[in-house]
Amino acid sequence: MSQNNSPVVRPTGEEAARASKKEAQDTEVEVLGPLHTEHGKTTIEDRVVQKLASIAAREVPGVYAMGNAARRTFNSIAERIPGASANTSGGVSVEKGEQQAAIDVTIVVEYGYSIVDVSEGIRSNIIDSVQQATGLEVLEVNIEVSDVHLPEDDDVEAERSDLK
């Protein structure tokens, strides 16, 4: 039997780093989100997230309406046109990636409710609803309060409709 007396050549620092990196890649399991599985990918349109967020915001006590004055006026006109429908996601805009979303909401708060409490309720409800329904991580929910609805506003509106 012959004995192998050849010296062992150790890898250089760069070679060792490459080998270590390759081993890590070979053993690493790709982390897929709930929308990206090994069997396929689910894509969710922005308007789906808008509708879910709008519904979740409207469920919170103290929310009188969604959107700014122009959006509310447009929706009220659209409701009077036969066959037309108002935008159910009015007052909500979404920035969405493949795994995450940021949501902006514009609301009118009913007089007598704490804006802080209503805002926190909206934020919590939207995050829970959107994350549960879509699997997207909601990074932030920004809320703009565009008005406060006063009880006397209903009286003025009723007078206007009586004059028509």
Score class of each variant (00 low, 15 high):
Ala24Met: 14
Arg47Asn: 12
Glu59Asn: 01
Ala102Glu: 10
Val148Tyr: 03
Glu28Arg: 14
Ser6Gln: 11
Ala19Pro: 01
Gly62Arg: 09
Leu52Ala: 00
Gln100Tyr: 07
Val29Lys: 14
Glu28Phe: 09
Val108Met: 08
Ala56Val: 09
Val49Glu: 06
Tyr64Arg: 07
Glu28Ala: 15
Ser114Val: 06
Glu28Met: 14
Val60Ile: 07
Ser93Tyr: 03
Ala57Asp: 01
Val48Glu: 05
Ile55Gly: 00
His36Asn: 13
Tyr113Leu: 07
Asp46Ala: 07
Gly40Pro: 09
Ala84Met: 13
Ala56Trp: 00
Val108Gln: 04
Pro7His: 05
Gln131Asn: 12
Val116Leu: 14
Val94His: 00
Ala78Val: 01
Ala16Ser: 06
Ser93His: 00
Gly62Trp: 01
Tyr113Ala: 09
Ser76Met: 12
Thr88Ile: 13
Gln3Asp: 04
Ala101Asp: 09
Arg71Trp: 02
Tyr64Thr: 02
Ala24Asp: 11
Ser2Gln: 10
Ser146Leu: 05
Gly62Ile: 07
Ser20Glu: 13
Asp147Ala: 13
Ala84Pro: 00
Asp46Lys: 09
Val118Phe: 06
Ser76Asn: 07
Gln50Gly: 12
Asp153Ala: 15
Gln132Asn: 14
Asn87Ala: 14
Asp117Gly: 07
Ile77Gln: 01
Leu163Ile: 00
Val116Pro: 08
Met66Asp: 06
Asp117Thr: 13
Lys22Pro: 03
Gly97Ser: 10
Val116Cys: 09
Ser129Gln: 15
Gly91Gln: 05
Asp26Lys: 13
Asn125Phe: 09
Val148Gly: 08
Ala86Gln: 02
Ala56Met: 07
Ser20Ile: 02
Ala158Trp: 08
Ser85Cys: 03
Lys21Phe: 10
Lys164Leu: 12
Thr88Leu: 06
Leu163Gly: 03
Ile55Ala: 04
Ile77Ser: 05
Asp155Trp: 02
Glu30Lys: 15
Val29Asn: 02
Val94Leu: 05
Pro61Cys: 00
Gly40Gln: 01
Lys51Cys: 00
Ser6His: 09
Arg72Asn: 02
Arg160Gln: 10
Ile77Gly: 05
Gln99Val: 07
Asn75Ala: 13
Pro82Gly: 02
Glu137Ala: 12
Val31Thr: 07
Pro7Asp: 08
Pro34Val: 06
Glu59Ile: 03
Thr42Gln: 11
Ile81Pro: 01
Ile126Arg: 10
Ala70Gly: 10
Thr106Val: 11
Ile107Leu: 10
Gly67Tyr: 00
Ala69Tyr: 08
Ser76Arg: 15
Thr42Asn: 08
Val9Leu: 12
Thr134Gly: 08
Gly112Pro: 10
